[in-house]
Amino acid sequence: MPPHPALVPALLRIGDDRLVLGHRTSEWCGHAPILEEDVALVNIALDLIGQANLVLQHAGALEGTGRDQDALAFFREAVEFRNALLCELPKGDFGVTIVRHFFHSLFSVLQWEALSRSADTTLAGIAAKALKESRYHARHSGGWVIRLGDGTDESHRRAQEAVDALWSYTGELFMQPANEADLVSAGLTPDVSTLEPAWRAQVDDVLRRATLRVPEVVWMQRGGRDGRHTEHLGHMLAEMQIVARSHPGAQW
């Protein structure tokens, strides 16, 4: 099946999640609590940015207007980004970073699993590669959620605060755009709302083992998928984009 131009918005959501979360994670470089964890977090950041690189490259090629992955990453404004709000929130303390990775990497594993069966063979290939990385990210963050939740009084308190603060941002991951039914029926992308039960079952299992509770939140934040972002994204992009914008076309 030939690539479908309507895939571009879907690819931007996938790529922007990884680009923004990857950049946020890279902010730990040199600041993690211990050398080994510094290395682990930066590895994860590099994995995510590598995934974004491949997905945005594919999006640029399908779009067909000459924008490559660098143009998409460094020369779009905040309102043009399609990442979930969860990915752009400040990195917070180690608990926030870990809980966010936990929520997003479990989603990522399910999303890449589904995308590895995409009718778009390029996307399926990217997904198969990324799936292995995301499985490791889920293992890393899941282990830490249990260690922090079932650890000291302070680590438990901070982990629970992170779960409480981030929970209302998880719903957006599973909001399926109404106008993409044809992508789903063509077997190009999964309906992300179908991934939620499996995600929730895994989250519940790990949080229970971590002695953490799921907050009773009904209202879920949304907006990132439509380009309505928090104030934090613009500041992050300013830092991420300044070198590329100050020296357009520079090679190194």
Binding site: L35, V39, R139
Partner: peptide
């Protein structure tokens, strides 16, 4: 060598530091 809280954590740190 690596620092780690438990065996699974040590395995992950070893992977990140010595086997990537």
């Amino acid at each position: 060598s690596v620092h780690a809280t438990d065996a699974e954590h040590a395995l992950q740190n070893a992977r990140d530091v010595y086997a990537r």
